[in-house]
Design a protein around this nucleic acid. Sequence first.
DNA 1: CACACGTCTTCGGAAAGGTA
DNA 2: TACCTTTCCGAAGACGTGTG
Length: 353
Amino acid sequence: MAAQRGRATGRPPTMKDVAALAGVGLATVSRVINGTPVDPVLTAQVTEAAKQLGYRHDPTASSLRRSDRRTRTVGLILEDVANPFSSLLHRAVEDVTSELGLLLLAGSSDEDPERERSLLGAFHARRVDGLIVVPTGQVNDELQAVRRQGMPIVCVDRAAELDGVDTVTVDNAGGVGDAVRRLHALGHREIAFLGDQVSLWTAQRRWEGFVATMAALACPLREGWVRRDLHGEAAGERAAREVLTGDTLPTALVTSQNLLTIGARYALQDLGLQHTVAHVGFDDFELANLLSPPLSVIAQDPKALGRRASELLLSRLDGYEGPERHVVLPTRYVARGSGEITRPRPGRGDTAR
DNA sequence: CACACGTCTTCGGAAAGGTA
DNA sequence: TACCTTTCCGAAGACGTGTG
């Protein structure tokens, strides 16, 4: 008996089983499941039969027949889902997608192009309706190919100049420029910079913001005060230590990523310079306000990034086929103390000149 | 004639079956 | 063994049928 299949055979019950038990046609079950108005009596019969059998709608079978070929899933490729920035972004995307009944599948690329490629392939093979990606920047050809096959893609946090791919980023250069201008207003001219891996799009933009603003303010850009292509907290600490123990010392320090910021702060504290050398980091992080002095940061809003990226993706899913859109969200300077240390008067102290 | 509901066909891709 | 064809899965959409 078909109606007994779910229990008798161990196979999941289907609409056919529900229809048989409810004494209605298959299409009636489909209409009830999909919310098309049906006689309330029949609706109750179908609902009861589905409940009795433990029927679960099969989205794979559904997408097989649906004219829009939708699977009601969205893929999300993050740098690292364990990273606080990524998890806030993840949550924001999930809030938007779940409201629409879409299932969000997420994975971490770990900045590894191979992993990004593999996740992209897996999501593509599972026919997710769309993708939101924090791109490593080294898998762009594959992203473009997937986009050309019709899958909407939105790049978030980092831009990728690809046809038909929308992007949502923050004003990285502007954020760093703002911090440099604030330091300059406090008298700082000798400002050091620690930068993330140069292959990263964000690292490049932040560096560009630093260089442009330093030039605009006629501040010297000393080779010994710049360390780039750093990865992780330990590298940040090492680089900061080198910069802060050189022949001529900077009076302020800008770190372009949160792990580098933490590493640099270790070095500053270890050298006893945390109250002397001004320090501003890109990206806020937990407990930054509890340090002494509390850390000033250029904060970005990962929730806003996630929300905006979701909105762009959903508009593509709703049929928008216009040119790619590039949304740039502002950063916010959070003054807590470390960035408000004024430049020591020349001739005193152990800093520059 | 309009509406409500049922039947038949179709979808994509994997696996099984058939043929040279 | 290689290649081609058929079957199968569950659900949705087109279309048909019955009823008021």
